[in-house]
């Protein structure tokens, strides 16, 4: 049966990607909020913000905006999974001789594809707005790798939400704090401008280390120890979320 796991996951991923193609608004709305934030902060608020770096404010801002894009994008993953569970199609899949986990993996891979498309749109707009980078191909790949890990970690959190939600609204509500988290980090302003306890929180929550790492990679500067803190957070959250999601899933399918 496991020999078919990859093929089954591929077929089911094709199915949910088709869902996205037929409602492209899910990708557009995912990209709209971060783009609006980017416009607001670059053209309205950014002039008053001192980042202490040489580059333009948009160079400083983009990493955090990309994380917000992904945090709002995974809400749709929870939403799609929830709808599958509510309709009969999930039970049909479960009563068929297909690999049990392929249903979940299909949603995870779809989330990855959809979020990478949204992120690409946001990066495109940022380039038009004057974002410039010195990053080498290697640094771009490292950024892509970190964003993929970030998407996977948040997607497995979304799977937990989708599996345990009682209502459609509940399924996507989990993403609000995730979207808000970058605001209390180094994503918009340097943490040393914040009062003590807030600065302490901002410096020690995962978003700051991830944002600082991506910013350093874009600026072609050494990433220092930040990348290891970021990777530890990402892999840690991913592992815990995956384990919890799988145990809920196994209980759910009996």
């Amino acid at each position: 049966m496991t020999a078919h796991a990859v093929g089954d996951t591929g077929v089911l991923t094709g199915r949910s990607l088709r869902h996205i193609l037929r409602s492209p608004d899910t990708i557009v709305t995912t990209a709209v909020t971060p783009i609006a934030l980017m416009l607001l902060f670059v053209y309205v608020l950014g002039g008053a913000i001192t980042t202490g770096s040489d580059g333009s404010y948009i160079d400083y801002l983009l990493p955090g905006i990309l994380l917000i894009t992904i945090a709002s994008g995974v809400a749709y993953t929870a939403y799609r999974l929830f709808l599958d569970l509510k309709g009969g199609i999930f039970e049909r899949f479960q009563s068929m001789p297909i690999a049990r986990s392929s249903v979940l993996w299909a949603h995870v891979l779809t989330s990855l594809v959809a979020n990478l498309v949204s992120v690409t749109i946001v990066v495109g707009v940022a380039l038009v707005m004057g974002f410039r980078t010195e990053a080498s191909v290697g640094a771009w790949l490292a950024v892509a790798g970190i964003l993929v890990l970030f998407t996977l970690a948040l997607t497995w959190l979304a799977v937990i939400a989708g599996l345990s939600a009682k209502t459609v609204d509940g399924a996507s509500a989990f993403s609000y704090p995730l979207i808000f988290l970058p605001f209390i980090s180094s994503a918009f302003v340097p943490t040393d401008s914040m009062p003590g306890p807030v600065a302490w929180f901002a410096e020690n929550q995962p978003v700051t280390s991830i944002v600082d790492t991506i910013r350093a990679l874009f600026a072609a500067e050494p990433v220092g120890g930040d990348i290891w803190v970021a990777l530890a957070w990402l892999v840690g959250v991913l592992a815990v979320a995956y384990a919890v999601a799988m145990s809920i899933y196994r209980r759910r399918i009996g």
Binding site: S23, G87, G88
Partner: peptide, 10 residues
């Protein structure tokens, strides 16, 4: 099943 298990988007 009791409720038609079809994918409405497809």
């Amino acid at each position: 099943g009791q409720f038609a298990a079809v994918d409405e988007v497809l």
